[in-house]
Design a protein around this nucleic acid. Sequence first.
DNA 1: CGGACGGTCAAGCACTGACTTGACTATGTG
DNA 2: CACATAGTCAAGTCAGTGCTTGACCGTCCG
Lengths: 103, 103
Amino acid sequence: MLDQRTPPLDRLFQALADPSRRAMVERLSRGPASVSELAKPLPMSLQAVVQHLQVLEASGLVKTEKLGRVRTCQIEPAVLRSAEQWITERRTSWEERLDRLGE
Amino acid sequence: MLDQRTPPLDRLFQALADPSRRAMVERLSRGPASVSELAKPLPMSLQAVVQHLQVLEASGLVKTEKLGRVRTCQIEPAVLRSAEQWITERRTSWEERLDRLGE
DNA sequence: CGGACGGTCAAGCACTGACTTGACTATGTG
DNA sequence: CACATAGTCAAGTCAGTGCTTGACCGTCCG
């Protein structure tokens, strides 16, 4: 689940593949949050949320830091950008090909 | 596996979550291909590739058409773009927030 | 101090996902 | 026609994922 040997892009897209995790990313894109803040809108146990969080951390998408008894989570936009980039590259590759063909 | 009830973004990111499927998308971004052309570089049975292809089709990422006995596959860049867009929105949302904070 | 709060550890379970194999169908080709 | 090619259908295996529950631990507050 937090296997460091699986390639970064794999962990990244797999992290984004789950709707609950995307909801968490969406929440975090509006600012940092604690674990229980993240959990509040989600229809599952706190523990389940923690597990999702671990996947997000392993992917690098989210960084967390514990201060006192509260763990605060933040998005890592650079990593988000690398997923973005993979997609953009494939898409433009296809579109350039169409252009070369005269369309 | 090809459940039409699951939301589009879910099927989309889930399709991209698998390395073999990304390899197929990568191949297709350089031009259309038949099923067996897609299968050639992959270390698995043809049937496995067909199953991946079904996931890609269900996500809308790939369109296929059968002519005679050969099925030809093509990328659908618009769908690729919608995944791209989701990521971009979250990322910029975060970055704008940093800007507002002075930083 | 004592309790509530925020989170962690560990185990277990149902379901899904990524394959395989084997039998089969339809379309081309010498 | 006979054979190869290109794919399809169905079934089964096996590991991984997404959850749950229950016990626990450290931190803060009245």
